[in-house]
Simulated assay, not measured.
Amino acid sequence: MGGPDGTEATAGSAPLARRNPVAKLAAALVFSVLLLATLDPVAPAVAIAVELAVVPLFGLGYRALLRRMAPLLLSAAGVLVTLTLFAAERTGTVLLTAGPVLVTSGVLVTALGLALRLLAVALPGVLVFATTDPTDLADALVQNVKAPPRFAIGALAAFRLVPMLAAEWQLLAMARRARGIDAGRNPVRRLRLFAATAFGLLVLAIRRGTRLATAMDARGFDAGIPRTSARRQRFGAADAALVVGAAIAAGGSLAVSFAAGVFRPVIG
């Protein structure tokens, strides 16, 4: 259901992409929260398989999803490597010994479980925000959840500004390069340049946020009077079914873990 290059989707025809934004957000939260009940790798692995199976129903291509998930994949790999090498407790069978490096089965299972759980918990959020129009989400929060309009509209404005931060980062980097400021292969200079660019981006973000807040106040967004909605966001039976289905899928993942005898509750 993605495009010819397997990247983006025909989102308008995707059945789950058409669901109410609040329903998609609630389903992602329910699915993610239930997975936090165990530390074993089986439950999140089953959950990831379910999530990947429904990706076409959200109208996303797998290559597009992979690009969006790249930072999370790096984070999960970092968690796996760090916990495997530097865990305080070494339980289970010794799998690898190389000088000071000691890898045991207990440490590997724990590290793998945390890495997979990170991906399983984050992937639903990626699917939701990749297939949800920010304006529809703000409208649904106000109409279906009765969120304060000031909060919903502020969240919408912040959501709209996120892509601009990436563009401004590139502009700052190009401007510094044009002035002859380049770290080359020196890691210390590269780190200092990164910190300076991040500080410059922070200043730009604060200035833009201040101007945006002033503009919104000038247009009466903080007037406190009832506001109307141009687009109705209805929460129907299909939306409720999506939330229930997410709970069932997460419960099924935990049931598989329990049946396999590897269920490790966080508490207890």
Rank of each mutant, 00 (worst) to 15 (best):
residue 116 L to W: 08
residue 223 A to F: 08
residue 164 M to H: 13
residue 180 G to V: 00
residue 266 V to G: 04
residue 56 P to N: 02
residue 65 L to S: 00
residue 12 G to H: 08
residue 204 L to A: 14
residue 79 V to Q: 05
residue 88 A to C: 13
residue 98 A to Q: 10
residue 267 I to H: 14
residue 260 A to P: 03
residue 43 A to G: 00
residue 188 V to C: 06
residue 11 A to P: 11
residue 130 A to I: 01
residue 111 A to S: 15
residue 138 A to P: 07
residue 73 L to G: 14
residue 172 L to R: 04
residue 204 L to N: 14
residue 68 R to G: 12
residue 51 E to K: 11
residue 254 L to D: 00
residue 155 A to L: 15
residue 121 V to A: 06
residue 57 L to W: 02
residue 187 P to C: 00
residue 117 R to S: 12
residue 231 R to I: 11
residue 174 M to Q: 10
residue 79 V to W: 00
residue 125 G to F: 02
residue 205 A to S: 09
residue 15 P to A: 08
residue 232 R to K: 13
residue 51 E to N: 09
residue 236 G to H: 06
residue 24 K to D: 13
residue 206 I to W: 11
residue 53 A to M: 11
residue 158 A to Y: 07
residue 107 V to E: 13
residue 114 L to W: 15
residue 165 L to S: 12
residue 199 F to P: 05
residue 106 G to A: 06
residue 158 A to I: 06
residue 10 T to N: 15
residue 65 L to H: 09
residue 44 P to G: 14
residue 227 R to H: 10
residue 231 R to V: 05
residue 82 T to P: 10
residue 213 A to T: 03
residue 105 S to C: 08
residue 15 P to L: 06
residue 6 G to I: 02
residue 247 A to S: 05
residue 22 V to W: 08
residue 150 R to H: 13
residue 157 A to I: 08
residue 21 P to G: 03
residue 219 R to W: 00
residue 202 L to C: 11
residue 186 N to V: 07
residue 75 S to Y: 13
residue 193 L to A: 14
residue 167 A to P: 04
residue 76 A to K: 03
residue 43 A to T: 02
residue 51 E to F: 08
residue 110 T to R: 15
residue 140 A to P: 07
residue 181 I to D: 15
residue 23 A to V: 06
residue 188 V to N: 10
residue 126 V to Y: 11
residue 249 A to N: 03
residue 154 G to R: 07
residue 167 A to Y: 14
residue 146 K to F: 10
residue 124 P to D: 00
residue 180 G to L: 05
residue 166 A to T: 11
residue 26 A to T: 04
residue 51 E to C: 09
residue 73 L to W: 13
residue 12 G to K: 11
residue 172 L to Y: 01
residue 153 I to Y: 15
residue 253 S to P: 03
residue 236 G to F: 05
residue 263 F to Q: 08
residue 164 M to W: 15
residue 158 A to F: 14
residue 56 P to K: 03
residue 245 G to C: 01
residue 200 G to I: 10
residue 235 F to P: 06
residue 259 A to Y: 06
residue 263 F to P: 02
residue 73 L to I: 12
residue 188 V to W: 14
residue 119 L to T: 09
residue 210 T to K: 06
residue 212 L to I: 13
residue 153 I to Q: 15
residue 41 P to Q: 04
residue 41 P to F: 04
residue 203 V to L: 14
residue 255 A to L: 03
residue 17 A to G: 02
residue 173 A to M: 04
residue 197 T to P: 07
residue 3 G to E: 03
residue 165 L to D: 14
residue 141 L to T: 01
residue 9 A to D: 10
residue 227 R to Q: 13
residue 158 A to K: 13
residue 95 L to T: 09
residue 24 K to G: 09
residue 126 V to E: 11
residue 17 A to S: 01
residue 9 A to N: 06
residue 26 A to I: 00
residue 174 M to C: 03
residue 137 L to H: 03
residue 243 V to A: 08
residue 146 K to I: 07
residue 109 V to D: 14
residue 145 V to I: 13
